[in-house]
């Protein structure tokens, strides 16, 4: 498991601001905006950590997270939207497995 710091304190606070304000405004918005806010946080986090991430993680971010903005505009197509999110979930699971395997190899 990599112990490199990839997030600065200011960036973490910015992400925290996005998450807490998202939680509040979600109370006033349609339920399907919830995934949209989480995707926005995902995209911002990706942008924050990209440069300091390992090559492996950076490739994952470029391939799977940087295309998130395109998905935002596709909410009206629920089937495609769901399929795209499922695809990201599979990709993140594969990424977790790679990190896990690497950690086990190092221990």
């Amino acid at each position: 498991m990599s112990e490199n710091w990839v997030l600065k304190e200011d960036e973490a606070v910015e992400l925290l601001a996005l998450l807490i304000t998202s939680a509040r405004i979600q109370l006033d918005e349609p339920a399907h905006y919830g995934p949209l806010r989480l995707l926005t946080a995902t995209e911002r986090l990706s942008g924050m950590i990209r440069e300091r991430s390992s090559d492996k993680s950076r490739a994952f971010l470029q391939e799977n997270i940087e295309r998130v903005p395109e998905m935002r505009m596709a909410m009206s197509d629920v089937e495609s939207y769901t399929a795209a999110l499922d695809e990201r979930c599979r990709a993140v699971a594969a990424c977790l497995l790679r990190h896990s395997a690497q950690a086990e190899g190092e221990s």
């Binding site: 910015e14 601001a17 996005l18 998202s22 405004i25 926005t40």
Partner: peptide, 8 residues
């Protein structure tokens, strides 16, 4: 922008 999740 940091407190405006809808501001892309």
């Amino acid at each position: 922008r940091l407190v405006s999740p809808g501001m892309f």
